[in-house]
Nucleic acid binder design. Structure first.
Lengths: 211, 211
DNA sequence: GACTATGTATAACC
DNA sequence: GGTTATACATAGTC
């Protein structure tokens, strides 16, 4: 019988390199596992990004990483907008100032990155570019797609009924449809797109950029 | 003496709303705490982003979130660049010429529109924003999605077989397991994006965005 | 990489 | 929000 145990309560960097590396692997696995259970059990969306000492990157996310990061971008943009417009006169919008070349290029760059992410998301929903996805991610993707099919089938029935029914049924049909998009209500483009639309100040652009 | 215990091994969504919310808080705290200790003990950089059912966002990160996300962007960028079949000349690119404000606005506008379209595409593949689609279009969409599922199922089988490979494959398998998307097929969105990519790459993407 | 003694997280109760 | 019985994670050893 061996005296094997984690007796240390001290949270400090592990000195010995090799044992630090093995601990890294174990804890990473544990953390990702915990994150996964958390997301399932609480219906939450979770993303975890880890960089090891050896510069290697690992990531876990419950829906896709791109999805969560873009959702975060949206939130950050809202917050930035809220805090920037904190002045009492926030209703009185300034005349949209033209953006500097720097801001524009920054925006273009971010848009480009968002495009890349959106493209990847879209491709994967079509079953393309699946390289590098874990089994877990694939299952998640498949689940999402199957939910999508259900919505589409429902919608098809609605549309069929629409053709077969007098006009006064239209409203109900639309209501039903409105309920269909329950989870992602705010699917209006992206944070950065909005950014351009409202032509916000350079200050805000900088906020956007600290993704 | 009460029989209080977490006897459930089943990992499924908690039914009751209020208990799900309290569990969310507890688990979130636990996860963040664990992430923090992990980062200290292993000298790793960690970022965690959580969205609750109630749409609230929480985040934890060991250095700053911005630092980690920008580091991730850099990695993704490298991977995308690495897997793209680059023409030999492409390495010796021209000195990025600075673009006029006007051209940048135009580029941004195009990107924005592209973004909008991509967003809509993605949403529809998820069964959202189906308003205004004809029956024929819906059928087309469904067909595409079903093809996607087939690819994914095939891919899942591949990945499963991958896991069953002998030990010498383990290193790669571990990377897959860690959800590390090791190679990103860097298919740029479109001709326009490609064009912009070359124009912007050095000057803006690298400099401004730290991609 | 498996084992296991011990530490830690947490689900149901108050 | 505190407590506690149990499930789970993990550090050290083989």
């Amino acid at each position: 019988m061996v005296m094997t145990c984690p007796r240390r309560t001290k949270i400090e960097k592990i000195e010995h390199l090799s044992s630090r590396q093995v601990t890294f692997s174990k804890r990473r696995k544990g953390l990702f596992n915990k994150a996964g259970k958390f997301s399932v059990r609480c219906g939450a969306e979770i993303a975890v990004i880890v960089f090891s000492n050896t510069k290697k990157m690992y990531q876990f996310s419950s829906p896709s990483m791109e999805h969560i990061l873009s959702r975060r971008n949206r939130v950050m943009k809202e917050r930035a907008g809220g805090s920037v417009m904190e002045s009492p006169e926030k209703k009185s919008q300034h005349e949209a100032p033209s953006l500097s070349s720097d801001s524009l290029s920054a925006i273009a760059a971010v848009l480009q990155e968002e495009n890349r992410a959106l493209n990847l998301d879209g491709s994967r929903l079509k079953g393309l570019e699946l390289d590098g996805m874990s089994l877990r991610e694939l299952n998640e993707l498949e689940k999402q797609i199957r939910e999508g099919i259900e919505s589409i089938e429902k919608r098809k029935i609605d549309v069929e009924n629409y053709y077969q029914q007098p006009v006064y049924m239209l409203e109900d049909s639309d209501r039903l449809d409105g309920n269909t998009s329950n989870f992602f209500s705010g699917t209006s483009s992206s944070a950065i797109s909005d950014c351009i639309e409202s032509e916000l100040s350079k200050q805000f652009v900088d906020t956007c950029l600290h993704l």
